[in-house]
Simulated scan of single mutants.
Amino acid sequence: MSNISIKLERPRVEELLARYKSQIGKDFPGYRNHVYRTITYAMYFLGNAEEHESLVETAFVYHDIGLWTDYELAYLEPSEAVAIADNQKFKLGLDSDLLRGAIHWHHKIFPYTGPHREIIEACRKADWIDASKGMLRKGMSRAAIRDVEAAFPNLGFHNTLMRLAKDYGGSTLAGGIKVTLGIVKW
């Protein structure tokens, strides 16, 4: 057992994700668990500071949503647009620039050093941990990653990404190239 704090229930996440359940369809359980894993990792890097929880939860609900709302492999900007619109529509009260930044930079290869660095960097590291299935640990222990993965199993999420790359890109290779060019930031 590691020292990572794992919340099995997050009402904000459930409420926000529920609005997109039918659009996400059969991919919903895998995406939901990906969202929970990344939130857990990011909150660990933020010392589980409650003042960051709403932003982190919301950013991760929306960070990949453009895959399903816009059927787009270059999904960062569509995901940002949905998040910003919902932030206004549902009066979530989050800083739009910070919410946009957490989504926009979550695939950045090198550390983020701009405005809101602490939160955006925590989100960036969290997504890299999960995207790599724990091969990239960003300073997190293997035990902590194992505990999070046990609490929120993959449920085929990474296979979903490969399938969507093929479906939207014409082939896994072409889709993979389009994804890489559209979402990876230096």
Rank of each mutant, 00 (worst) to 15 (best):
P111F: 07
Q88E: 15
T38C: 14
D86I: 07
A143F: 03
K166L: 11
E9T: 05
S22W: 01
A18D: 09
A102V: 04
M162S: 14
A174E: 13
L99M: 01
P11V: 01
T38Y: 11
F60Q: 14
E9D: 10
K178W: 13
G175V: 14
I103Q: 15
Y41V: 14
H104E: 08
E80Y: 12
D64K: 12
K125R: 02
W186Y: 02
K89C: 10
L164F: 12
C123W: 03
Y20C: 07
V61C: 15
D127S: 06
N3M: 00
L76K: 04
G114I: 03
H104K: 09
H106T: 03
K185G: 05
R19M: 12
H63W: 07
A143W: 02
F90W: 14
G134N: 03
G101C: 13
L98N: 06
L46N: 12
L8P: 08
A42N: 10
A102R: 04
L46W: 05
W105P: 12
R124V: 01
D27K: 00
R142N: 15
N33S: 12
P153K: 03
P115Y: 04
A18W: 02
Y36F: 09
Q23T: 10
H34N: 09
S79Q: 05
N159F: 06
M140Y: 10
I65Y: 05
A144N: 10
K89G: 11
G156A: 00
A42Y: 07
D86V: 08
H116S: 07
W105G: 03
A151M: 01
L181S: 05
R142F: 11
V56R: 10
K89M: 11
A131D: 00
N48F: 05
N48D: 14
P111G: 09
F90L: 15
P29A: 15
L73C: 13
I4P: 15
G93T: 10
Y62M: 02
N87Q: 07
A83I: 00
F110I: 08
G182R: 05
G114W: 01
A126F: 07
D147A: 05
Y41C: 14
M43P: 15
K125C: 04
A131T: 01
Y36K: 04
R137T: 11
T58L: 09
S79K: 06
E77F: 06
Y36R: 05
G175S: 13
K108L: 07
